[in-house]
Design a protein around this nucleic acid. Structure first.
Lengths: 180, 180
DNA sequence: ACCACCATGTAACAGGTTACATGATTAA
DNA sequence: TTAATCATGTAACCTGTTACATGGTGGT
């Protein structure tokens, strides 16, 4: 009966459970709060919202404004809640990362070790920045939001540890170029 | 001069540096060895290879076989190597994870804690399985392959740590439903 | 004078998945 | 006899990005 929805559909419907919002509002929220793990682009949002209405998961109404552009406010429907619920209950698919850096490393023989080290350093410094940002964040609204922050932290720490080790290992190749 | 190539292009060209191969061969290698971090689908591979030829990054030749289907063997060209090199040297983009589980957790208020716990447990058990598989692996061919394995391990450990903590935290909600 | 915010969208493209289609050979 | 291996591809879809387009209001 209830057709399947995508993760992006679910993200938007999920935000709509907090009340009627415009595409603009949704984009704002999704790119700031919690937008660490799901941030569809503006154009995607504006494309998806009408689809949600078509499929009966949301309704929209026009709001005429003066002094600023008119807008559309979206509201989740009962059937939207049902579909969202079904999506939330599906067991999550969790796949290992597919990051370009790994491919670059895997093909590392084709690169100067110095370049690889730069790559790894970049990863490390970005992971560090993320870690700091997450640590600096106020203790978070809900327990659940907190858990997602925790995820980002664990991930960042893992990346830092990994990058640190990787750099050393590559550097040791530099010291002894033709080990034998 | 050298146009940009995608990560998938690079993956295939990278494998082709080990010698002439068919689409079938490439798929095999990419899904087994190191296919942890880049595994294009069969249909994608067969779509990309002719494009590589068109763009001058590879050449192909027909091999007629008896007893088994004929095949096309692909060989990387000099210009292919140049393009690959350029891609490898580009600083890597490393973005934090975008996993559905996080979205489900973020919207956790909409789910029974029991369901969330099941979700988290699933993640944990899959991360554990990955960890074991990686630990069981023979010490790996090259240093670089080793480093990518190390990445998978750090990642898996981080996921296990996180899931363990998350489960406890959600469970503590169960004990005291309306904490106050 | 300039920039950010509000607000919505279109068009072109890139990247990727699933399912379907075919068919001989060989090992269990 | 059943399944895996070898081998290549098409068709239909879905998801997503970048760049372009518009234009008033309000703050520095």
């Amino acid at each position: 009966m209830t057709a399947k929805i995508s993760a992006t559909d679910a993200a938007l419907l999920g935000l709509l459970t907090h009340g009627e919002q415009s595409g603009y509002d949704l984009q704002r929220t999704s790119e700031t709060s919690g937008g660490f793990f799901w941030a569809p682009t503006k154009s995607r949002i504006y494309a998806v919202l009408p689809q949600l209405v078509e499929r009966g998961y949301a309704t929209s109404r026009d709001v005429v404004q003066t002094g600023r552009p008119n807008k559309q406010l979206y509201r989740i429907t009962r059937s939207g809640r049902t579909a969202l619920q079904a999506w939330l209950e599906e067991p999550p698919v969790f796949e290992p990362e597919r990051a370009p850096i790994l491919l670059k490393l895997y093909l590392g023989e084709l690169l100067e070790p110095e370049v690889l080290i730069e790559h790894v350093r970049k990863v490390r410094s970005e992971a560090l920045a993320l870690k700091r940002r997450l640590e600096a964040q106020p203790p978070a609204e809900s327990t659940y939001a907190e858990i997602t922050v925790r995820h980002g932290l664990e991930w960042a720490r893992a990346m830092i540890r990994w990058a640190t080790g990787a750099e050393q290992e590559i550097a040791s190749k530099l010291g002894a170029p033709t080990a034998r």
